[in-house]
Structures are given as C-alpha cells and as structure tokens.
Simulated scan of single mutants.
Amino acid sequence: DRIDDLENRSRRNNVRILGFPEGAEEGNPIAFLSTILPELLGLDPVVPLDIERAHRSLGPRPPPDHRPRAFIVQLLRCTIREKILRAAREKDKVIWRDKKISFYPDLSKDLQQRRQRFAEARQQLQDRGIRYGMFYPATLKVTYNGVTSAYSSPEEVLNFLKSLPPVIFLVQLSY
C-alpha cells in the first residue's frame, strides 16, 4: 500500500492525454503541447504551462490503424494540472483535427483498476441524477437529499442504490 501510495503521489502533477495521432508532436512534445493546449482548452496563452517533461507512454509505436499512445505530461505546478483538467471537463468535448482528445489524471494501473470497479455504480448514479464524486485513492462520495456518504467498495454503493425508491420514467407519446 505504501509503495502504491508513493507511486501515485509521484504522479500528482501529471496529466495523461489521449487522442493525438502518432507523430503529431514532430519530435518535440513539449513545444507541441505548450502551443496546442491553450488553444484547445481556452486557457490564457500568456500564462505558461511550465511543462517539465512530456513523452508518449512506453511501448512500441503502434501501426496506423491502432489507437495512438497517450502523452504523459509532467507539469511543474499542480495548479496548472488542475486548470487543464477543469478546462477539459468544462469544455466537455475537445476536438483537434477531427480527433477526440481526452484528459485524465495520471494514476498507477492498480489504482485505475480499483476506480474502474465503480463504473457500474457511477452509471446508475448518473442515470438517477444523483450527485457523486470520485476521491483519492478510490472513494466514491454520494450526495443524496443533502446527505453525503462515502463508499470504498462498489458493492456498498449498489446496496445504497437498492435501498432507494425505484425510479419511474414517464414517457410522453405524441401523435
């Protein structure tokens, strides 16, 4: 647990960016991202991003018909990381040259899998219009009728959802 925590803390200023085609950076990912990200996200171009390091995820270059590797971007300040992630979330869909670009915090594979276990519960919460948030490391906080509860396992969330009254959808037919 301590090693996993240390690994994730070492990544706390990192952003994982998916969707840019291979070779779009033309050999200089820092310069490419420093110019493209403010345009794409509507960030102030005067404020520097202070990118310490940027590279594609490890592994061989995929063939053209496969999904491109992600960019891993290490920023000097976590405030810039938060601005990037917030701007991407507010913009909803980020498109660059007809490609969808996605932004995520960079987490270890183990932590990503632990958070992924909540996918079904999060979908059900979203379908019901219930407010929720995922907190570090893998805790889902749910706010329902003004009361906030924290869950560390998806089973707890699903049990909570079963205890709620059923949702009735009204369908309006028009002729």
Rank of each mutant, 00 (worst) to 15 (best):
I3Q: 09
D5L: 15
I17N: 13
I17R: 05
E22Q: 08
E22D: 08
A24K: 05
N28M: 00
I30L: 02
I30D: 09
A31P: 14
F32M: 02
S34W: 04
T35S: 09
E39H: 09
G42E: 07
D44C: 02
P45L: 01
P45I: 00
A54F: 13
H55R: 09
R56H: 10
S57Y: 11
P60K: 10
P60G: 10
H66I: 08
R67N: 10
P68V: 01
P68F: 00
R69A: 03
V73S: 01
L76C: 12
C78R: 11
C78G: 08
I84G: 04
L85I: 05
R86M: 01
R86K: 09
A87D: 00
A87W: 11
K91D: 06
V94R: 00
I95Y: 08
R97N: 15
R97P: 05
R97E: 14
F103I: 02
L107I: 04
D110A: 12
L111F: 01
R114S: 01
A119F: 02
A119C: 04
L125F: 04
Q126F: 06
R128E: 05
R128A: 09
G129S: 10
I130M: 08
Y132S: 07
M134D: 07
F135V: 12
T139A: 15
V142G: 10
V142W: 09
Y144H: 15
T148Q: 08
T148E: 07
S152R: 06
P154Y: 05
E155F: 03
E156C: 06
V157S: 10
F160G: 06
P166C: 11
V167L: 15
I168P: 15
Y175T: 07
Y175G: 14
